[in-house]
Amino acid sequence: MELTFTHHQSAHCENGVASNLLKNSGLNISEPMVFGIGSGLFFVYLPFIKVNHAPAISYRTLPGQIFNKVATRLNLKIKRQKFSSISSANKALDENLKNNIPTGLQVGVYNLSYFPDEYRFHFNAHNLVVYGKTETEYLVSDPVMETVTTLTYEDMNKVRFAKGAFAPRGQMYYPIQIPKEVDLKSAIIKGIKNTCRDMLAPMPIVGVRGIKMVSRQIRKWPKKHGVRKANHYLAQMVRMQEEIGTGGGGFRFIYAAFLQEASVILANEELKELSKEMTQIGDSWRDFAVEASRIYKNRSAKEDAYNTIADELLDIANREEIFFKKLKKAIS
């Protein structure tokens, strides 16, 4: 059994699934648009939570939030279900396929057999679409892959019922109602306002202030934790920024693409200029990653080197602070 479903590769899994599912239901909306309207851009530093034995740093909002915000702001209805048992989860998915509904799933990455081994770690907020099944396998459209792929029944059960933080508990979701006309303009403005509020939030671990805090912490890492651990922390930060489908520069390039698209829809020239500025900030994030990689490549750590990249990060934070204040003005 195979449903008609067009696979488009995307940078990030959640935007990608949302964009692909909506396109499939007749609402043509790009990945950057989903990301912007859903206010996906974020920064949070959670030193008390360890991911891969390093402090958690996230460049995006919580899993599920992007699609939920898109749904509220565009007046879509999305059904989400979680399950307590594997068999009821399977039954519901099969039922959906029978009813011709391609279905989004939240899954754990560790048992995704089509991922390269090095990328399989315990991360439970990945998203994909199931659009059919054969005797032995489910047909899978994973937005970060170039083409469609498959998963055996057994692996599917494992990824849907992965354990640990953000355990998916079989979660599946799909749009059940899409209005004929959507009001993109007001949705874009709401999305931008939300992001400005997040990034300028008066909390020490969130947004621009969060970036500044990380910059302060980096200076202390080599002394406090020793070279090996400090390098590991830095490498993890770069991975979070570049690797897990951020489209480059910790989502800054996707966001710039969104602003460019938004400037056309809102007929707002200022947003186009701001898009260019965001691209430059994204380039600085890339430069930061290059400098950081020099440190952990050599496995040497002069304190100087840590101070240099901390300065670079502080500079980025200051520029983003100015940027988001301008962005807030540009749409008010």
């Binding site: 940078a11 490498a235 993890q236 690797e243 390039f253 990653a289 290059v290 990689s293 490549k297």
Partner: peptide, 22 residues
């Protein structure tokens, strides 16, 4: 200066970060 998507086979700073964590 318009945004578009493009494919990449990889980037050295990332590869080093990954091999560092391996």
């Amino acid at each position: 200066g318009n945004y578009t998507t493009t494919l990449s086979t990889g980037w050295e700073p990332k590869t080093i970060a990954l091999s560092n964590s391996i």
